[in-house]
Amino acid sequence: MAQSAETIHGSKSKSGAAWWVEPYLTVLALGLFGVYSLWLVFFQHTGQFQNYLSPFFSPTEDWGIKVLPALWVLWAPLLFRATCYYYRKEIYRGFFHDPMACGVPESRRKFYFGETRFPFIWTNLHRWFWYIALVVLVFLWIDAVKAFIFPVAGGGSTFGVGLGSLIMLVNVSLLTMYSLSCHAFRHLVGGGSQKFSCADGSPTTRYKLWNTVSRWNEKHGLFAWVSMFSVWFTDVYIRLLIYGVIHPVRFF
């Protein structure tokens, strides 16, 4: 395997001149997503257009707990992402310059505790946020199915396919792959076990699961980004429908 040209120390190398691009792009993308999410929380009160429901506002059931509609849901996937092993790398590099890129000198700080003390020790609870995010995912799948069931004038409903249905299906599929390629899930399904073979030499079920999730896990970073942008795009599409800026496209 060739050694990467990613590592830079100082500014002597031409080959690694763009080491700062990734951390700044991370700050831009996550920062804009954060601002957009806050705008939804504080200034938007619905994500529903006909049978389409924005992932920021699902589930709509509040079980008597009165909070801002988007905030009711948003905290769970946000904490799931904030404690994600992939995003941690990007966040530490982009927001905390800890380090900004490999070999780039950090600004001298008196203390560094990593993930051993508050607040970053909370990242150890990633699996708990994964459990909660999984519950949210179930609701998103229900919403995706509902996106294919259109109301009929005069009552009743019918199966149909609209652009929004497809967007919501793609979105929930990407979110599912992001969740199932998670490092914590990889550990829970089999990574934590010591042996992968049964007494007769055949592979254990946990091995098969671990092996499959390991393959997905190689693309975890990709799923992390595309699923975040798909959530964003799905909400923007539905919001433009709500505001009447665009009209719904129905294929049949």
């Binding site: 590592t7 092993y85 941690r88 790398k89 530490y92 590099r93 800890d98 380090p99 490999c102 070999g103 560094y112 505790f113 990593g114 993930e115 051993t116 970053f120 020790i121 150890n124």
Partner: peptide, 10 residues
């Protein structure tokens, strides 16, 4: 001190 690793993957 595994907690000191912040998985920046260098």
């Amino acid at each position: 001190g595994i907690g000191y690793c912040n998985i920046t993957k260098c």
